[in-house]
Design a protein around this nucleic acid. Structure first.
Length: 467
RNA sequence: GCGCCGGUAGCUCAAUUGGCAGAGCAUUUGACUCUUAAUCAACAGGUUCCGGGUUCAAGUCCCGGCCGGCGCACCA
């Protein structure tokens, strides 16, 4: 059966409810409109038929009569889920439902599968994630969460543009996976007969653009990490990274809290929300505490990057954590912090002054060379952002990479690879620069109040079906 | 990768101790001129995820596999 190639739509459901709210029961407006959407319900009553049509804005009832609706019998036999285009007058039925009184109509597309139980929708996770197109109609909440994600991304872009940041794109196919500590995906280019890795972070490329004179750059892009999946981890996820020449990490903390607060205002209209039933505030400024302070409070004694490794072994093993032979005091402090503090950090907070040992790309702290000018923000017990004053000394950067290479030799699977081209780039001169990374999916979970990352990814990674 | 839980009609879910595989919605047919998850009547709809095994008898018990959810591990 041939269906139309186009349809002229001139009204949306939501706007009709706003414009014709004044109509009395049984009153006809005299205004003819053209609407389009999916048929969600059909109630036939003899020579009348009431249908519910949903478009991108909302729902509107369709009211058909055998006396005035063209091809009434065929209209009443439309299937739930069919796309329809409707021309008719805006009326309010005797029972008070605003409706489009169908004059002429056309089926724009047939739905050969239904959209779930009309009351329960679709609840099967597998069906919802594998066929999100059906889930979006069956479960309005899915639509809301994905719309919020989109609005979040738009807000981030607009706020960066407003401060003079330029959006750039850097390679996803990388000869060396670097810029973060993670296991990569591998792929192969046929014509070059070369293996490539999908990027685990855009970080080093972006700093090379700062070397090139782009003083304010950001990238919003997919990164890929070959790790386990969980309610908080998808193998491909969206990273936001931003670099600003002449800033240090304190400038970047101010930028970060202002950006996230602003995004919440743009998307939700408030900084005060509930996440999974528990109150939460994005309001800036966020407190700043050093990692050593927080870890000391948690364990009830003063610890720092200068605490002996032996003491850390005791503190960590008491908490069931085995200290790897390659860990120094810095790594131990970071592990202790994660084990004792991370989960309890509910409202946004900046944790600062990370050990050099766990921060191979960050610049040394000016008052304690065992630390770096680095921060991570935490919220709802999870890492939300990561930023630092960028290490811009090529000689020291090489030494830091070599430390990572030693870790790799000792069996550390996630150690960072040495990138000679990046070191060469630094030799051309990177000005003092601060960088920021935010996991957009994690932020979207907060904004959309979703506990599972798959809910804010339209098509999350699933194993392919096979027999 | 490991552990726990789950998979029954297109969708949402039942099925007692191992004893004829069911309901609502959707689909199909019919009735109904103001419905609101409309209502009423009727028809139809099944590889109980897949493959083995135990048993007179398996949706149910056992073994293996597939897919999903959660937890752990890894990470953001």
């Amino acid at each position: 059966m041939t269906t139309p190639y186009r349809f002229t739509q001139n009204a949306f459901a939501l706007a009709l409810h706003q414009q014709f709210g004044h109509l009395d029961d049984g009153e006809e407006s005299g205004i003819t409109v053209s609407v389009a959407g999916r048929l969600m319900l059909m109630r036939r009553q003899g020579k009348l038929a009431f249908a519910m049509m949903r478009d991108s804005s909302g729902e509107i009832q369709l009211f058909a009569l055998s006396s005035t609706t063209e091809e009434f019998e065929e209209f009443a036999k439309l299937h739930l889920g069919d796309w329809v285009g409707i021309v008719g007058e805006v009326v309010r039925t005797k029972r008070g439902e605003l409706s489009v009184k169908v004059s002429t109509w056309v089926r724009l597309a047939e739905a050969q599968h239904n959209f779930g139980d009309k009351w329960a929708g679709i609840t099967d996770y597998e069906l919802r994630y594998r066929h999100r197109e059906a889930d979006l109609w069956a479960n309005p909440g899915s639509r809301v969460s994905l719309v919020r994600r989109s609005e979040l991304v738009r807000s981030v872009r607009q706020r960066c543009w407003a401060q003079g940041f330029m959006e750039v794109e850097t390679p996803i196919l990388n000869a060396i996976p670097t810029g973060a500590a993670a296991r990569p995906f591998r792929t192969h280019h046929n014509a070059l007969d070369t293996d490539f890795y999908l990027r685990i972070a855009p970080e080093l490329w972006l700093k090379r653009l700062v070397v090139g004179g782009f003083e304010r750059v950001f990238e919003l892009g997919r990164v890929f990490r070959n790790e386990g999946v969980s309610p908080r981890h998808n193998p491909e996820f969206t990273m936001f990274e931003l670099y600003c020449a002449y800033w240090n990490y304190e400038d970047m903390m101010e930028f970060t809290e202002s950006l996230v607060e602003g995004v919440a205002l743009d998307v939700l209209g408030t900084t005060e929300i509930e996440y999974q039933g528990r109150p939460f505030s994005f309001a800036a400024p966020w407190p700043r505490r050093t990692m050593a302070e927080l870890a000391s409070e948690a364990v009830g004694e003063q610890v720092s990057v200068h605490t002996s490794r032996e003491r850390f072994v005791e503190l960590l093993s008491a908490r069931g954590i085995e200290v790897h032979p390659s860990w120094g005091s810095g790594r131990c402090l970071a592990e202790l912090f994660e084990a004792t503090c991370e989960e309890s950090l509910w409202n946004p907070i900046f944790v600062t002054d990370f050990p050099v040992e766990v921060s191979p790309l960050a610049r040394r702290h000016q008052v304690d060379p065992a630390l770096t000018e680095r921060f991570e923000s935490y919220a709802v017990g999870r890492e939300l952002s990561n930023g630092f004053s960028e290490l811009n000394d090529p000689v020291e950067q090489r030494a830091r990479f070599e430390d990572q290479a030693r870790l790799a030799a000792e069996g550390e699977l996630e150690a960072m690879a040495i990138d000679e081209e990046y070191i060469r780039a630094l030799e051309w001169g990177l000005p003092p620069t601060a960088g920021l990374g935010v996991g957009i999916d994690r932020l979207a979970m907060l904004i959309a109040d979703e506990a599972n990352i798959r809910e804010i990814i339209a098509f999350p990674t699933l194993k392919p079906l096979r027999d």
